[in-house]
């Protein structure tokens, strides 16, 4: 493909006096997984929300190459079009699965919601698709009718991923998808995500403060500090040959195992 899937130009977001994210520009190409790393408060989640149309930037533009509608200005779209985009061509995986799931309905209904939202009206087909996705995220099929309240943290996160991927999005935004999980649970989730990204040729923007997660899942990294991108490049370049003082500090802070 000859055009970037997502382009940010000069994206800036202020909260009062504080500039949460300052003049960020980049292009995400089809099949790429871009990691945004930096410590808490560096503006990475704010940037992610600006990219996904959840926050309106004070300056700059975000354009997306839509399969259905061609090149679109994410923040110039009507809310209706943007929400349609968000539930068809995009996915958004929250750190807290409770924010991304409907905790009051079964896992099957959680997965099926996107299908029903875009007009699926055959119960049997929806249920079968839910089953397929439950299997793909390695959850036992006998948990199909259980509510996520009865799920463990790792299972909830996998369910949230299935709920997002069921519409076969082209671009997935992920905000600390492995945050708050035990290390062994994290490893399984990372592995699963890696496989799904490969299998469905997903493009993704992933926010994490965990450089190990970034190493395993992303092709490229942007390092943010104080709202600015201080360094970017291939993931192994940034982690093996960090240039900026802040990145060097981050890399040096990883505990050896």
């Amino acid at each position: 493909m000859s055009a970037p899937l997502l382009s940010a130009r000069g994206v800036t977001k202020r909260f009062g006096e504080r500039i949460a994210c300052r003049d960020v520009s980049f292009e995400l190409w089809p099949g790429e997984v871009l990691g945004i790393v930096g410590e808490s408060g560096s503006g990475k989640t704010t940037l992610l929300n600006c990219l996904a149309g959840r926050l309106t930037p004070d300056g700059g533009t975000v354009t997306y190459e839509s399969a259905a509608a061609g090149t679109v200005d994410v923040h110039g779209l009507s809310e209706a079009r943007r929400r349609l985009l968000a539930r068809t061509e995009w996915g958004f995986v929250n750190q807290d699965a409770r924010e991304g799931l409907r905790m009051g309905v079964s896992a099957g209904a959680n997965i099926g919601e996107r299908l029903m939202a875009i007009g699926a009206r055959h119960y049997g087909t929806i249920r079968q698709t839910s089953c397929d996705w439950l299997a793909r995220v390695e959850i036992d099929l006998d948990r199909l009718d259980d509510r996520p309240t009865t799920y463990s943290g790792g299972m909830r996160q996998r369910l949230q991923i299935a709920r997002n991927l069921v519409s076969e999005p082209r671009l997935v935004f992920m905000d600390e998808p492995t945050g708050g999980l035990d290390v062994s649970v994290q490893a399984r989730l990372l592995d699963l995500l890696r496989g799904l990204v490969d299998r469905f040729h997903l493009s993704a923007v992933l926010v994490t403060h965990d450089l190990g997660v970034a190493r395993l899942l992303t092709h490229r990294l942007m390092v943010m500090q104080g709202g600015k991108v201080v360094e970017d490049g291939l993931t192994d370049q940034v982690l093996d040959d960090p240039q900026h003082a802040y990145t060097q500090m981050l890399v040096a802070s990883i505990l050896p195992v």
Binding site: E79, R83, S106, R127, D145
Partner: peptide, 22 residues
Amino acid sequence: RTLHALSEYGVMQVSLYESIAR
């Protein structure tokens, strides 16, 4: 109100799905 404005009624269908599942 937003859901009505945008005709986003998937969630109602979800409740019927849930009823059949149960």
